[in-house]
Computed example of a mutant assay.
Amino acid sequence: MYKTILVPVDISEDVLTEHALKHVEYLAKMSGAKVHFFHALPDASAFVTAYSFGIKEFENQAEVKAIEGLKKIMAEIDLPLENLAYTISFGSPRDEVLQLAEEIEADLIVIGSRRPSVKTYLLGSNAAAIVRHAKISVMVVR
């Protein structure tokens, strides 16, 4: 059914990730799919003026924290480690997810989302943007 499932996660949103992981685990077990986790970090140059250290230090710290978060998620999911991978990049979550989906030839994206609010109706959410622009199937888990 599926060969590669892409799972964009926000490591600071435990509840959203937890809900999505139940579905990912089930689908991966049923189809023998590989699961590729992804986390997008904000463009560091936008934050440099707020910090006393440089861009590279900010990026390195953010990347280390993201890797730790993704490895924690991977340790908690009941799938063989050889079927799990992760990627971290800096940029727009929507753009980075869509680009990665093509690169790894994903055939499904599973993303957690909370109930829409006034803010997401006006500005849009990452999940909604991915659904609108993806060339493959997207499962939004609430």
Results as ranks from 00 to 15, higher is better:
E13Q: 12
S137P: 03
M1N: 09
I109M: 08
D107K: 01
K22T: 07
S12L: 13
I73Q: 05
E102S: 14
A33T: 06
M30A: 12
G91S: 10
G112K: 05
V7C: 05
V64H: 08
L100F: 07
I77C: 03
F38Y: 11
V140F: 03
Y51R: 04
V131P: 05
A33S: 13
F37Q: 00
S113I: 06
K34A: 07
K56G: 13
S52P: 15
I104G: 01
F47Y: 11
D43F: 14
S137F: 03
A28C: 11
A20T: 00
F38I: 09
P8D: 03
R132Q: 10
R94E: 15
L27D: 01
L84G: 04
I55V: 15
L81F: 12
F90A: 02
N83K: 15
Y51N: 07
V138N: 09
P93G: 09
Q61D: 10
A101M: 05
Y26M: 10
K119F: 11
F53E: 08
I88T: 02
H23N: 11
K119D: 06
V48L: 10
Y121N: 12
V131R: 08
V118L: 14
R115G: 12
N60E: 15
P42E: 11
I109R: 01
A101P: 05
K3A: 13
T49I: 05
L108P: 04
V24Q: 03
E63F: 14
L16Y: 07
A75C: 10
V97Q: 08
R115A: 12
V138I: 09
A127S: 08
R115C: 03
D14C: 13
V35A: 09
F53I: 15
M139G: 08
T17W: 06
S89E: 04
L98R: 08
G91M: 13
F53S: 00
R142Q: 14
K72T: 10
F58M: 14
F38P: 06
L70S: 01
S12Q: 13
K71Q: 15
Y121F: 13
H36L: 07
F53G: 02
A106E: 01
V48I: 15
F90Y: 10
E13H: 13
V131D: 05
I77T: 12
K29V: 04
K71R: 08
E63D: 10
P93M: 00
N83M: 12
E68T: 10
F53T: 12
S12M: 15
A46I: 14
N126A: 10
L21Y: 02
V48F: 00
S113E: 15
A20H: 07
D10F: 02
K3T: 14
G32E: 07
E76K: 12
V138D: 02
A40N: 05
L41F: 11
I88C: 03
S125E: 07
Q61L: 14
V141L: 10
N83A: 12
A28P: 00
T49Y: 08
M30T: 14
V110E: 06
V140P: 05
T49R: 05
L41I: 06
E25P: 04
A66M: 15
G32K: 12
E82K: 13
V24P: 01
V64S: 11
